[in-house]
């Protein structure tokens, strides 16, 4: 067996099911995310995209299926296999739609907190935080509080915060949905740079042009199932399924 091919998969999802109050939200979803690849999940609201993303760091507990993240089996059958939830979450960074920065801490402290709790020495945590803020172009805002920053700045700090523990994959949950066009452009620029640096990313997004441009793989989710997946040019350019075509047509009409 080829060991390299195995370790190449950062996220393995097999036959994942999840229901809320008897309503099936994820219905037998299987998906692999390879190292340094960017997977964009698209689809209507309520289709299960966000739930799928939240299962990957066990913010949401699946009903059954298999989940492997960064070489560890975290969920199998219908039970948690994750021995160390903190360690899993340190290897999976997450960026939220509403940023969720800690409002009582400055930008630099937001990026330091998880490092300090994970035992990184104060000086190293500070150095890394400043370096990450520089990377997202916000070193000059390091001592600002979230409420003093624009939405785009907050989301860039949130990206720096998610990168603080050197995760092996970054999850983005509609990172630009609450931003104005200018802020969206700032955030997409940072994400594009991360992509160029080889960061593995899974993003739930409504930014189809961005998905087409940056993603290696596009997954269309509807009614809790993966309806269609493939290269962006195929899924977005030559969709095979009727539901995908309907979604893309309504998206185009909304633009």
């Amino acid at each position: 067996m080829n060991v390299r091919a195995l370790s190449d998969v950062v996220v393995r999802i097999e036959n994942l099911n999840k229901s809320f109050d008897g309503r099936l939200v994820l219905d037998g979803v299987s998906l692999n995310v390879r190292n340094q690849k960017i997977v964009a999940i698209i689809g209507q609201s309520g289709g299960g995209k966000t739930t799928l993303l939240r299962c990957l760091n066990l913010l949401e507990r699946p009903d059954h299926g298999l989940l492997e993240v960064a070489g560890e089996t975290i969920f199998k059958g219908s039970s948690m296999e994750c021995r160390d939830l903190a360690k899993l979450r340190q290897s999976v960074g997450m960026v939220f739609q509403r940023f969720n920065l800690f409002p009582h801490l400055t930008a630099v402290e937001n990026v330091m907190l998880a490092q300090l709790r994970a035992g990184v020495p104060e000086k190293d945590a500070l150095e890394r935080a400043v370096q990450l803020l520089r990377r997202v172009g916000l070193a000059h805002r390091a001592l600002a509080y979230p409420e003093q920053m624009s939405g785009g700045e907050q989301q860039r700090v949130a990206i720096a915060r998610a990168l603080a523990l050197k995760p092996s994959v970054l999850l983005f949950d509609e990172p630009t949905s609450s931003l104005d066009p200018e802020s969206t452009a700032e955030v997409l620029r940072v994400m594009r740079e991360l992509a160029a640096d080889g960061m593995t990313m899974v993003l739930v997004t409504h930014e189809l042009p961005f998905a087409r441009d940056v993603a290696d793989w596009v997954v269309f989710v509807d009614g809790g199932k993966i309806v269609e997946q493939g290269a962006p040019a195929d899924v977005l350019g030559k969709p095979q399924e009727l539901r995908t075509r309907t979604f893309l047509a309504s998206y185009a009409a909304g633009q």
């Binding site: 913010l59 360690k87 997450m94 939220f96 969720n100 800690f102 998880a114 709790r117």
Partner: peptide, 15 residues
Amino acid sequence: VHAGQQEASEALGLG
């Protein structure tokens, strides 16, 4: 305190 705060914290690996 907004529920998203707890979520963001747990997503960062804080217990």
